[in-house]
Design a protein around this nucleic acid. Structure first.
Lengths: 198, 198
DNA sequence: TATAGATATCGCAGTGACTGCGATATTTCA
DNA sequence: TGAAATATCGCAGTCACTGCGATATCTATA
């Protein structure tokens, strides 16, 4: 299996991957330097050595550059990793542990920079929710797969919401913290708050 | 008190209020008829009897028309109504009861139409989250005012998130339901799910 | 009631994200 | 090697949104 994934990568694929990465890096660098709005597509294209028209052949929109760093790999890994959790583990903990593992591997130097860019304007802050919404949907669907009993659906829907909320609050806590601690700690603390009764 | 609020409304204020409402109604009607993207600002302006330039004197952006119907009155009422709740009522229930009361009064014929427009595209679905984000922030700030103990902050932050999540899930449930039941029922059911342990 | 000052409306010219189209170059595969 | 698939590009166009300066309308005051 994975035959098509690892089949010999031709010049075309390699160049495409390289260009994609170059645009994404150039973009986030420029955003960080001069601000998101102040950075025009033309500037990104020029700094990436492509024409403005070609940019849209790689990213549908300007903010897809940010989504690239925020979501790449993460969203696709959630479903399989969540299904790999022990079937008898309570759903909320299954999600928590999945997030724990994933965060550890997808934590790169860019993530803090991207986070700061996202929080530089109200519009972007809102746009970031698209990611959470998508993840919430994925988590819910996967939880339903883990436990298909229809009478549990409403409960699982709620758990997906709460889990992504805890995730979001962990990121918020990290951003507001003056120190710099490992992301896992914020996540653990965030989920721990859920232990107390409402 | 409220002196400036009820002081005689001059021609200027009245016309402004009327025009604002006319634009908002025209806009949402056109969105419903032809779709959000297919409705240009020019069309809204013309149908409202104003110039395109003047539109932006009433709304900063095109989608502020939707925000007008979604949020007007609601967001401003949450804080005072939440503070009016009995001080000994547990925070989550205080928020729930506030929402219950508010939903009853702000439920108009437009709300279903607006909801459908918001859900007609991914972009708009995401943009709607701006409202929830804002409400969550307001609820959190107000809960902190109700109970200023610093050791409760993290807990209250979580409650604000959970409360808005339950609100959002209630709206989702209503949208997915084939029947048409009072909004309050969906909200009650949504909060009831939180009773069960995670 | 006349009038100065504040506010409302508008047209116009611009910017910037994004799209469709048609031309040309590059890569792949038979 | 040559035809098909894909990548790149320029160009012209659309649409949301902004800044500016002109004119009209309303309000408060003398």
């Amino acid at each position: 299996m994975y035959n098509e994934a690892i089949k010999k990568e031709g010049t075309r694929e390699r160049k495409r991957r390289e260009t994609l990465l170059r645009i994404a890096e150039t973009g986030v660098t420029l955003f960080a330097e001069q601000g998101y709005d102040a950075t025009t597509l033309e500037a990104i294209a020029e700094a990436s050595g492509i024409s403005p028209r070609t940019f849209f052949y790689y990213f549908k929109t300007k903010d897809e550059i940010l989504q690239y760093w925020q979501g790449t790999g993460f969203a696709e890994s959630v479903a399989p990793m969540l299904l790999a959790q022990p079937a008898n583990k309570p759903p909320l903990y299954a999600v928590r542990d999945t997030f724990m593992t994933l965060l550890a591997s997808y934590q790169n130097e860019k993530s803090l920079i991207v986070d700061r860019i996202y929080n530089s304007s109200e519009t972007l802050r809102v746009r970031k929710q698209g990611f959470y919404l998508h993840m919430e949907q994925t988590v819910f669907a996967t939880l339903c797969e883990r436990d298909p009993r229809p009478e549990r659906r409403a409960h699982l829907r709620m758990i997906a919401m709460v889990a992504l909320g805890a995730f979001r609050l962990a990121m918020e806590a990290r951003r507001n913290d003056t120190q710099t601690r490992p992301v896992g700690e914020y996540l653990a603390e965030s989920f721990a708050v859920l232990e107390a009764p409402f």
